[in-house]
Every structure is written in structure tokens, then in C-alpha cells.
């Protein structure tokens, strides 16, 4: 079967579309019988009918092998939409692909009935149909995977934004509690949000608390120093606090130079220095002492 033009599939699809649709939807519903609540029959029927009409138009061109071609753009669009939708609703790749694969059964049954007299033609048509539907099925899996990856990417981005809050500890004093590993992408975000807050609040001191940073290697230290340098260019001094004993040892062993940065063991110490520098003092009220 090299000449797709001779295929009778386009004709069969055109003639028997309603029956194929009905048969197919019924089979899908039967297959999904054990899992209620996933998709309503009406939604399934609507998706199936959109796919079928797109498919019917696409096969007219006779290009069965090239589903990336322009003739198949309609089908690709419909399938893309369906698999994205399913990916977002938590369907597994198998369930998504089965949407296409399950059409085989309906189509083959129809082919067998139409071509009962000609065994050769039946075999050829079945082969053509199966390769085509396999490709379409794999395409849905690809789209499914892609949209899952998009979801993951978006979540990562959201987590990144959530994980770097800049808080105002006092008038003119910003706090930057860092939690988790500090890589270059995160440093960038930390830096940007810190500098933005410096502009907004006019802060002169920022306390970077690294209690929640599990390890400080040379790269992390470099990132920290970059942030400190950028803040200084905006006229704000940085204090690094929350240095655990273990981290202090690592820093010294690695030969990281933190001479030019004020470092404190705890956030409280850093805050005290920050207050002193901004000209504030905290006092215990006499009658409570």
C-alpha cells in the first residue's frame, strides 16, 4: 500500500460518520465504565465528533503518512486541545492516548464489513488505518507530556517567587529570609526583588538571613556577595545573618572571603545592628522591668 489515493478510508469515513461516531463513543464509555465521573457522555461525544469531522477532512488529501503536514493541521489542533484539557484534568497519558486508539476498534469493524469480499484490500486498509491512528495517538501523548511539563514549569516559577519574600523589619530595614538552595536563577530573583523593595521603601539596611540555606559552597557564597554588592550600589548595606556553626566552618575551609560584609550569627544580632545604624534604640519600659 504505497498509493494512499486508492484508499477507501476517506469514502468510508464520509459515508458512515454517524455510525462510526456512535459505535466509537459506546466503546469508549464501555471501556471507561469502571471509572465514573471522569468525563460526561455529552463531552465525550462532542470531542469525538470534532475529531471525526477533522479526520474526515484531513484524509481527503490522501496523505496518511505525513500528519505533520498542512492537511492535518485541523486534526492536530483538535487533538492538541483535547490532550491539553485532559492533562490539566489529571488524566494519565494512557487514558489520553486511548481516546485515539479506541477508534481503531470501531473503524476496523466498519472496514471489515465494507471490504468483506476483498481480503487484500482489507489487510491494506487496516494497515493504513492502524499506522495513521498510531501516529495520531503518539501525537496526543506528546502534547499531553508537553502540557504536563508546562504545568510543572509554572509551578516551579510560582514556588520560586513564593520562596523569596522581602519583608520590612523596621522603618528603613529590610529582611530577606532565604530558605532552600541558592542557585543562580534564584539569586537573580532575590536580587531583583530586594533592589525593587529598596527603591520602594528607601531602606538603608537589608538583613539577609541564611538560616534556611542548607549548605553554603563557593557558588552560593558568590551569589550572596553579588546580592550584597548590588544592594550597596543602590545605597543599602547588607548584613548576613543566621550563619550556623557548621556553615561558618565550611566558609572558612573553602576560603570564601566575607571580610567586606557584616556577618552575624543570629537574625536578632543583625537586627540590633540595623537599628543602631538607622539611629533607633529599643528600650525596656521601666515599670515592666
Amino acid at each position: 500500500m504505497t498509493r494512499d489515493e486508492k484508499s477507501r478510508i476517506p469514502e468510508i469515513l464520509r459515508k458512515h460518520e454517524p455510525e462510526l461516531l456512535k459505535d466509537w463513543v459506546q466503546r469508549q464509555l464501555a471501556a471507561a465504565g469502571g471509572r465514573p465521573g471522569q468525563l460526561s457522555e455529552a463531552a465525550l461525544r462532542e470531542e469525538a465528533s470534532r475529531f471525526l469531522s477533522a479526520l474526515r477532512e484531513a484524509v481527503v488529501g490522501g496523505q496518511f503518512r505525513d500528519i505533520a503536514g498542512p492537511a492535518w493541521s485541523g486534526v492536530r489542533e483538535v487533538l492538541g486541545e483535547i490532550s491539553r484539557d485532559r492533562a490539566q484534568h489529571g488524566f494519565s497519558p494512557t487514558e489520553t492516548a486511548m481516546f485515539v486508539f479506541s477508534f481503531k476498534e470501531a473503524l476496523f469493524a466498519r472496514l471489515r464489513r465494507e471490504l468483506a469480499a476483498d481480503a487484500d484490500a482489507l489487510a491494506d486498509e487496516t494497515w493504513a488505518a492502524t499506522t495513521l491512528l498510531d501516529r495520531l495517538g503518539l501525537y496526543t501523548i506528546e502534547i499531553h507530556q508537553k502540557s504536563r511539563e508546562e504545568v510543572i514549569g509554572r509551578q516551579q516559577q510560582e514556588m520560586l517567587e513564593l520562596s523569596t519574600p522581602v519583608v520590612e523589619l523596621w522603618q528603613g530595614v529590610l529582611g530577606l529570609p532565604l530558605i532552600g538552595t541558592l542557585d543562580s536563577a534564584r539569586t537573580q530573583i532575590v536580587m531583583e526583588s530586594l533592589l525593587q523593595r529598596i527603591v520602594e521603601t528607601g531602606a538603608t539596611i537589608a538583613v539577609i538571613d541564611i538560616t534556611g540555606v542548607p549548605t553554603v559552597d563557593t557558588l552560593v557564597a558568590q551569589h550572596l556577595l553579588k546580592t550584597v554588592a548590588a544592594a550597596r550600589l543602590m545605597g543599602a548595606d547588607c548584613i548576613i545573618s543566621g550563619i550556623r556553626p557548621q556553615i561558618a566552618q565550611t566558609i572558612v575551609h573553602l576560603g570564601v572571603d566575607l571580610q567586606n560584609v557584616i556577618t552575624k550569627a543570629t537574625l536578632a544580632d543583625a537586627f540590633a545592628i540595623a537599628l543602631q545604624r538607622t539611629g533607633f534604640a529599643v528600650q525596656r519600659l521601666p515599670h515592666r522591668a
Partner: peptide, 19 residues
Amino acid sequence: AITLVELGMALPGVKTALN
């Protein structure tokens, strides 16, 4: 500020202020 730091020019000898 970010650009300068990325360029490795933290202007160590220069005093800075916000405005």
C-alpha cells in the same frame, strides 16, 4: 545595579546612596 554586578564591577571605592 544588577548589570554592574554581573559585569564584575561592584565599584568598591565608590560611596552610594539611594537618592
